[in-house]
Design a protein around this nucleic acid. Structure first.
Length: 868
DNA sequence: ACCTCCCGCCATGCT
DNA sequence: AGCATGGCGGGAGGT
């Protein structure tokens, strides 16, 4: 219905193009665009035409133009105005004309190469159309048909992009063909939530397990660990991989119940899980192989069919391309003994679970596990009862509310469209540029937009994050590494929340949103929930009600509604429980993090000791238990919604935050048993962990990036927020003053392009590692974006962005050899996993220390290569 | 030869 | 039935 309304103007052409297979291939796209536009387009929607025309830059010149236009809105608009119309007319013929007119050769050449058609490029184009931080007040509707037309791609492709964006809550579905653009307002929150969920699910453990297996296979260690593996498997089985829940955030959520039928499987869920893997793993490097296994549920690796595995890999590439466009991840290669494996490194903001708000809860998981469990169970039962679709259930009541709301929205939205494209218009056209170029352009734009956009959010406090701080000083250092390396930082980190989020806002001062996070509700899937024992309960469900209250004000009704729904669905109890727990959880997490010191020590000791198998086992056990509970599934509904709204929500957050802080719990995690720290453990587990973890914890790359702030373009790229927030700057200063960070560090940045080379001090492994990350990030930013940063930059913007980033200097980014071997992480488990690779990047030197544990060290090299 | 991953068939489910 | 979504995997471009 709504759609129709929306489409009214557009529809005709849209449909023609879109629906029909015509769109089909990009090949035709051009034609399509032309056609479409002519048909109705021009008349109805001016914008489209533009795109169309742009759509295919047949000549190099055209491409260049495109880039430029992408970079510079002005140009863009100009071109659009001029040429678009022409193109519109063109229609199919137009393209022919173009081809012919323009030179057949060129035409062919220009023909979009595969790369030009890549999802990543397409995503950049898509993103270029919207502000990173859209003004909530404005209409941010996205009409899929329009976008598809404008971008000259099949709608199918748009779905791929939108699905991933939706998983991050950057868009939410309004109605058929319609989505609302949220931009990055909720990103940190979402990431925090995902991290929490990931922790709950124990993805870190799962990763470790997998790695372990791999090692075993490789080395035949298997037997000793086999048991563990089994456990894991079982867990996974329970989880069920269960996983498939979709984590919802407030605002975004509902896409509808109805609509969501397929959600479960969907790319959305996969995307969230994939992101969780990054957030949970210490190195923050995730290989496709591991991700695929985990997403498949793998533990039972062997079970995997190749075909299934291959399919999963394909999907992961799809997701990765989108995430890369968002600057959340960067492609790298991990070199292991086996060989080089494609992997992706998280370049997005670091998130502390609690940080963003919601997450904290998650973090607490361990301590709170029990509570969570109960909560979860309840929630699951209640919430999920509905599940028509497994994943999303919402409370019935909530659902009703939501529906009503949605309907309202639709009505409103549907109004004859305003297709909003906020910015889109300007950006729109993206002709096909070379990927990189396009990317750059897009990036530049985005950055600009971000900048322009405002700081938007308030900073959330990141105190929570402090928890991250992992024990190991080195790590901290590493974290800071970008900033700097001071090891000292580490502890401080613990204390200091600073670390936190770069992204988010790190401003410590502000708590508002709280770091703690916003509350969110996690809905478990009924099945899972029920099935699963609550061992640790992920359940973190935060009560929706709670959320709703909080959010309510601003958020949009949606959020509240959801919350309410949830609440309703879930029985009251659940929520209540959930709510309460959340704070605790957070606190717990925080505590845990604080505990880090312990962890760190443990870890360090472990390392030193070389992890003993015992630990490993223990860890495994812990994992197992965890695993059982893990999967979280369900969604989280954060109360807080959008950061933008933020302030209001803050109250809730504050509460949470407050709770959090108080709560520090011991770390001992029920789950882990031995291992106290969950979060840390997880990270540690992953591998190189120790180093890494601390680093991560301590300083999140993002944070780091943020710090640099000034330009922090890099950061910006990854996290707009950081950039935006002045707070980050403040934080930086603070840190500097404190001595935690060295000023120099921040700036360092030069993006080091290549592999970094920073010799970071090996000494502390962690440290060394950190740098890498940072470096990598930086690199990634620049690199990934486009090879040609400079060029793109017509505007300064782009440049700045890239340039700033990197602090690189500190870390070497490139590949490091590390001997990774298994490390044991304090947490216990050591897993040799390939993960190590990640570490490598960072630090090479240290390896030796770790190194040798079980295995032989592998070297991991992570090469950040730009993909494409 | 392997890595990526585009492309579009076709199932699913809402209208 | 028609249409919107989107799972899925063949197969081709890139290295």
């Amino acid at each position: 219905m709504e759609n129709e309304k929306e489409n009214l103007f557009i529809e005709p052409h849209k449909r023609v193009l879109m629906k029909s297979p015509l769109k089909e291939s990009t090949k035709e796209n051009v034609a399509r665009a032309d056609l479409s536009s002519p048909n109705l387009g021009p008349l109805t929607t001016p914008t489209k035409p533009k795109e169309v025309s742009q759509g295919e830059p047949w000549t190099p010149t055209a491409n260049l133009k495109m880039l430029i236009s992408a970079v510079s809105p002005e140009i863009r608009s100009r071109d659009q105005q001029r040429g678009l119309f022409d193109n519109r007319r063109g229609l199919p013929e137009a393209k022919d004309c173009l081809h012919e007119h323009f030179f057949g050769d060129e035409y062919e050449k220009s023909q979009p190469s595969r790369k030009e058609k890549s999802l990543g490029l397409l995503c950049h184009k898509f993103l270029a159309r919207y502000p990173k931080y859209p003004n909530p007040a404005v209409n941010n509707d996205i009409c899929l048909d329009e976008v598809a037309e404008e971008l000259n791609v099949e709608r199918r492709r748009i779905y791929d992009i939108v699905n991933v964006l939706e998983s991050l809550h950057m868009v939410s579905r309004l109605a058929k063909n319609r989505y609302t653009w949220h931009g990055r307002h909720n990103l940190n929150k979402t990431l925090g939530t995902l991290k929490s969920v990931g922790e709950e699910n124990k993805y870190a453990e799962q990763i470790m397990m997998i790695k372990k297996k791999e090692y075993e296979q490789e080395f035949d260690f298997i037997k000793s660990y086999s048991i563990e593996d089994h456990v894991v498997k079982s867990n996974t089985g329970q989880n069920g991989h269960t996983e498939m829940c979709f984590v919802e955030l407030p605002g975004v959520e509902f896409r509808a119940a109805s609509v969501n039928s397929r959600k479960d499987k969907s790319l959305r869920v996969m995307s969230q899980k994939f992101v969780m893997l990054f957030l949970v793993s210490t190195p923050q490097i995730v290989s496709l192989e591991i991700a695929a296994k985990i997403l498949i549920g793998e533990d039972h690796v062997e079970d995997l069919d190749k075909s299934k595995f291959k399919t999963k890999i394909r999907r992961l590439y799809d997701i990765a391309n989108v995430l890369s466009s968002l600057d959340l991840i960067k492609k790298v290669h991990v070199t292991e003994e086996r060989g080089r494996k494609p992997a992706f490194k998280w370049t997005g903001p670091e998130i502390s679970p609690s940080t963003s708000g919601s997450s904290p809860v998650i973090t607490s998981a361990i301590s709170d596990l029990e509570m969570r469990r109960s909560a979860k169970e309840n929630c699951a039962k209640n919430l999920f009862s509905t599940r028509g679709k497994p994943n999303f259930t919402r409370h019935p009541s909530l659902i009703k509310l939501v529906k009503s709301i949605e309907s309202d929205r639709r009505k409103i939205n549907s109004a004859p469209s305003s297709p909003v494209k906020n910015k889109a218009e300007s950006s729109q056209n993206s002709p096909p540029f070379p990927n990189k170029m396009a990317q750059l352009a897009a990036i530049c734009k985005m950055q600009l937009e971000e900048q322009s956009s405002e700081p938007r959010k308030k900073v959330k406090v990141q105190l929570a994050r402090s928890r991250h701080y992992k024990p190991v000083a080195p790590l901290d250092a590493s974290a800071n590494a970008e900033l700097e390396m001071s090891p000292s930082l580490i502890q401080p980190l613990g204390v200091v929340p600073l670390v936190p989020s770069p992204l988010s806002p790190a401003v410590p001062v502000i708590l508002p949103q709280a770091p703690s996070g916003p509350s969110y509700a996690i809905y478990l899937q009924p099945a899972q929930a029920q099935t699963m024992a609550p061992p640790q309960g992920l359940s973190p469900a935060v009560c929706p009600s709670y959320c709703s209250q909080v959010t309510g004000a601003k958020d949009s009704t949606d959020a509240t509604t959801k919350a309410t729904r949830d609440a309703t669905k879930s029985s009251g109890p659940c929520r209540c429980e959930s709510l309460l727990p959340a704070p605790e959880r957070q606190g717990a997490k925080n505590q845990t993090r604080e505990a880090p010191g312990e962890r760190g020590s443990k870890r360090s000791s472990l390392f030193e000791d070389c992890v003993s198998k015992k630990k490993y086992k223990e860890d495994l056990k812990g994992l197992d238990s965890v695993a059982a509970t893990l999967f979280p599934s369900g969604y989280l509904i954060p109360l807080t919604q959008c950061s933008s709204l933020g302030a209001e929500s803050i109250l809730s957050n504050k509460e949470s935050s407050g709770t959090l802080s108080p709560n520090h719990r011991l770390y001992s995690s029920p789950i882990a048993g031995v291992i106290p720290v969950t979060s840390s453990e997880l990270t540690a587990v992953n591998f190189p962990s120790f180093h890494v973890t601390p680093l991560k914890l301590m300083v999140s790359p993002t944070s780091v990036a943020a710090i640099p702030g000034g330009n922090s373009p890099a950061l910006a790229s990854s996290h707009p927020i950081a950039i935006q927030n002045p707070s980050s700057a403040i934080v930086n200063f603070t840190l500097q003053h404190l001595g935690l960070i060295s000023p120099s560090v921040q700036m360092s940045a030069s993006p080091g392009p290549g592999t970094g080379t920073i010799p970071v001090s090996p000494k502390i492994e962690a440290v060394s590692i950190i740098p890498e990350n940072a470096g990598s990030q930086h690199r990634r930013v620049t690199g990934s974006d486009s090879p040609v940063p400079g060029q793109s930059q017509p505007n300064g913007q782009s440049v700045t962005m890239t340039g700033t980033q990197q602090p690189v200097p500190v870390t070497p980014k490139g590949s490091h050899l590390v001997a990774e071997s298994f490390f044991r992480t304090p947490g216990g488990p050591t897993k040799p996993t390939g993960l190590s690779c990640v570490d490598f990047d960072g630090a090479g030197a240290d390896k030796t220390s770790f190194g040798s544990l079980f295995v032989p060290q592998r070297k991991l090299e992570v090469s950040t290569e730009d993909v494409h």
